[in-house]
Amino acid sequence: MGTLRNALGGICVAFLLLAVVDVAVRLGFPRSDRLNENFSSTYLHREIDALRGSSPTVVLGDSALWGYGLPAQRSALSLLRRQGIPNENLSYEGGSPPNTYAMLRALLRDGVRPRLVVFNVNQKEFNPMDSAYRQLHPSVERLAWSALDRSERALLKPTQPSGSDQALQRIVESTWQLYGMRNDLREWLFGDVDAVHVAQGAIERISGTAGRRRAAHRPTAEAFEGTYDLTPLNASDVSFRFLALVADLLHRNRIPALAILTPTNHVLLHQYVDTPEYAANLRASTFLLRSRGIEVLNLDDAFPGTDFIDNDHLNAAGNVRLAKVLRSALQ
């Protein structure tokens, strides 16, 4: 028994020390301008918790509003914040109408009532081939799944693998804050989810691989063939149904909202988006939202091709222009 006592004693001491570290993380882990690239459900829960009792302007967008390709402080929403327009940017890569809806449900369930919700509508997300068409971000799914109705869950394809190990993993992540937020911690420390990515990036810059890869992946129109589904939008489109659910939820709860039709690179995507079908789908989205009293800001063709990194992500200059436009709209 002395053997067992020694081992258990050591494990208990370890648990105690880790619990102390956990408390420190809970109290002291900084909040950033936007969600991390690989944010955890633990971190998201923390962010939503921090908003409880306040009435913020909440932004629920996809990578376009998240500021893809740029550091956090150069995204349009961060610029707006520094210009005196406070907002809570809960956008992320992989956002879509189902994701916007799930986030809204989670916010309302957890006692956050925004004074204004800003979200974007990206036409590519109505394409059944899009990864976010009927899938939630894994961290959002973990947090918001229970807030959805059964019929809403039935429309979605769960991303969470099942199994005893996955279930245990989820239990550990929800009880051990430091472990649950490990990706967020690493991004805060290293700017990346893996410390070794920093070394990898340096090696690829020295060897020239980074430059060669960038050149090989320069966006071309052909690369986006099939990205935008031009069939008429209707209730059979799951993502469009969730857009309606977003609008209904906002309307029912009398929460003011501003829907942005996502800036789209018409120079690059001319053959796909300068078509009657695309325009009809934009009108369908606009009509759906306005019929529920949601203001719509059509920025679809509002930005020149030089403001884009690719099909729908703005570069630094584009984000400055977007911040200016949003500032006018929000004021």
């Binding site: 090696i203 060897s207 691989t209 060669r212 890869r213 090989a216």
Partner: peptide
């Protein structure tokens, strides 16, 4: 298969 250089292979 992707455009790696000498250094990448050695590392």
């Amino acid at each position: 298969g992707t455009p790696y250089g000498h250094l990448d292979y050695w590392v």
